[in-house]
Amino acid sequence: MPTKIILVGPMGAGKTTIGRMLAQELGLPFKDVDHMVVEQAGADIPWIFDMEGELGFRKRETQSLLASIDGESAIIATGGGIVTQAENRKLLNLQSCVVYLATSVEQQYQRTLKDKNRPLLQQSDPRQVLEDLMAIRRPLYEEVADITIETDRNRPKAVVNQIISHWNKYA
């Protein structure tokens, strides 16, 4: 039986919100890979991108993913780009149930519009950036996912219930 539920999906899909709710519902610890990166670096994500570039951030992200999957059962929220690294895609499926929280580019855009903590979106046309990222990443999310849940029209509680229903199939 998988010992962890790992949430993947694009920025703005609700991974952190749903992850926290899911952890509370199941009585499991919650781990957020992006927060782990920030804590370990002692700096926010934009600073890491500025100083180390995306490659530096991705290395830190892999280290945090390794730390999050080591040990006890947990609910783990990942960053939107975690699937871009082949090593991470292999790690995601180790004793875990991977849930792809799918959302539309429009929903992502609405949810991230005012968030200055997303370095990839600090461009003149963030909607186009989201579309470009989705074209690259969607097949990777689908590759690692055990289950896909649409979040656009679902309240977080409904998504949590769907995940729990799937998780119970493993029990």
Score class of each variant (00 low, 15 high):
residue 157 K to V: 10
residue 6 I to V: 13
residue 7 L to R: 06
residue 148 T to R: 15
residue 108 Q to M: 13
residue 157 K to D: 06
residue 77 A to Q: 03
residue 86 A to P: 14
residue 13 A to Y: 01
residue 120 L to N: 07
residue 50 D to T: 10
residue 123 Q to W: 01
residue 47 W to Y: 11
residue 114 K to H: 12
residue 54 E to M: 13
residue 59 K to L: 12
residue 124 S to Y: 10
residue 106 E to F: 13
residue 171 A to F: 08
residue 168 N to R: 13
residue 43 A to W: 03
residue 120 L to R: 11
residue 54 E to N: 12
residue 41 A to M: 15
residue 22 L to F: 09
residue 152 D to I: 03
residue 124 S to G: 05
residue 75 I to K: 04
residue 65 L to G: 03
residue 65 L to Y: 08
residue 141 Y to C: 09
residue 9 G to E: 01
residue 97 C to Y: 10
residue 151 T to K: 00
residue 127 R to W: 05
residue 157 K to R: 11
residue 96 S to T: 08
residue 3 T to Y: 06
residue 143 E to L: 15
residue 42 G to T: 09
residue 36 M to N: 11
residue 82 I to M: 11
residue 22 L to H: 08
residue 61 E to P: 01
residue 161 N to L: 12
residue 143 E to F: 15
residue 61 E to T: 01
residue 55 L to R: 15
residue 1 M to Q: 08
residue 23 A to I: 09
residue 95 Q to Y: 06
residue 61 E to K: 06
residue 62 T to I: 04
residue 113 L to M: 07
residue 117 N to S: 10
residue 147 I to R: 15
residue 147 I to F: 11
residue 1 M to G: 09
residue 23 A to T: 06
residue 12 G to F: 01
residue 62 T to P: 03
residue 86 A to G: 03
residue 126 P to Q: 07
residue 31 K to P: 01
residue 110 Q to D: 11
residue 3 T to A: 05
residue 152 D to M: 06
residue 137 R to F: 11
residue 165 S to E: 12
residue 31 K to H: 12
residue 64 S to P: 06
residue 95 Q to P: 02
residue 95 Q to K: 13
residue 31 K to T: 02
residue 156 P to A: 04
residue 35 H to T: 10
residue 37 V to L: 07
residue 1 M to P: 13
residue 146 D to I: 12
residue 12 G to V: 02
residue 75 I to D: 00
residue 137 R to S: 08
residue 25 E to W: 05
residue 61 E to N: 04
residue 141 Y to N: 04
residue 14 G to T: 02
residue 21 M to S: 07
residue 87 E to G: 05
residue 62 T to K: 14
residue 90 K to G: 02
residue 166 H to E: 09
residue 162 Q to G: 05
residue 10 P to S: 14
residue 149 I to G: 00
residue 99 V to I: 15
residue 141 Y to H: 08
residue 149 I to A: 01
residue 130 L to M: 15
residue 165 S to D: 10
residue 107 Q to M: 13
residue 104 S to T: 15
residue 51 M to T: 10
residue 83 V to F: 10
residue 48 I to Y: 04
residue 65 L to Q: 02
residue 111 R to I: 04
residue 102 A to I: 04
residue 98 V to D: 00
residue 76 I to M: 07
residue 149 I to P: 00
residue 149 I to D: 00
residue 11 M to T: 02
residue 6 I to G: 00
residue 160 V to E: 00
residue 99 V to A: 09
residue 64 S to R: 14
residue 78 T to C: 09
residue 68 S to C: 11
residue 13 A to R: 10
residue 34 D to L: 12
residue 3 T to F: 02
residue 100 Y to M: 01
residue 129 V to R: 15
residue 48 I to G: 00
residue 8 V to F: 08
residue 4 K to P: 05
residue 4 K to A: 04
residue 75 I to R: 06
residue 171 A to Q: 14
residue 15 K to C: 05
residue 106 E to S: 15
residue 31 K to G: 01
residue 5 I to S: 04
residue 63 Q to L: 11
residue 16 T to M: 04
residue 18 I to K: 02
